[in-house]
Structures are given as C-alpha cells and as structure tokens.
Amino acid sequence: MDNDTIVTKVNAALAEEFELEQAALVPDAKIRDDLGLDSLDIVDMVIVLEKAFDFKLQNKESLAAIRTLGDIYTFIGELRDAGTIR
C-alpha cells in the first residue's frame, strides 16, 4: 500500500465516521484543536482505523504520540512497514 492510498483511506474513514469536512483533512491538522476530536474520540478513531486497515492495535500507549493527522499517516505507514498492514 503506497502513502497516497494511506492518506486517501484514512481521510475517507475519518470523514465518514466523525462527520468531518474533507477540506479540513490536511496533514498539519491538529487532531484535537483543528478536528475537534478529544480523548473520547481517539478510542473510537482507533477502531475506525483498525477496521479500515484490518489490523489490531497491540499497544494502546503508542497512541500518545499522535497529535496531527500527519502523525496518523505516519503511524499507519509504520504498521505497513512492519508488515502488520498489507
């Protein structure tokens, strides 16, 4: 899966599940301040991503580093590089 596909898939899933505008979904968008997703939503976001990319997050604490939408692309990219996501 290339990086563009990851971006498209993440954006589509988040737009649909959190009712967000596509235009707001830029790499620099801060999850909390710009997208309005708080700690309650992060849990749901993981489930959305798990479903979209068919994986199971093994370490919840790894979420702590995620601040921006770009961090999510990187996070998914790392799972792909590790072979967790095909």
């Binding site: 649909e16 599940e17 959190f18 939503d41 849990v43 749901d44 976001m45 489930i47 959305v48």
Partner: peptide, 11 residues
C-alpha cells in the same frame, strides 16, 4: 452520537 461511536458500541 457520531457514527464512529455507534459502531464502537454496536461491535
């Protein structure tokens, strides 16, 4: 409730 949450509690 947003779709993401509804899916979470349904599944």
């Amino acid at each position: 409730l947003r779709p993401a949450y509804l899916h979470h509690i349904a599944d």
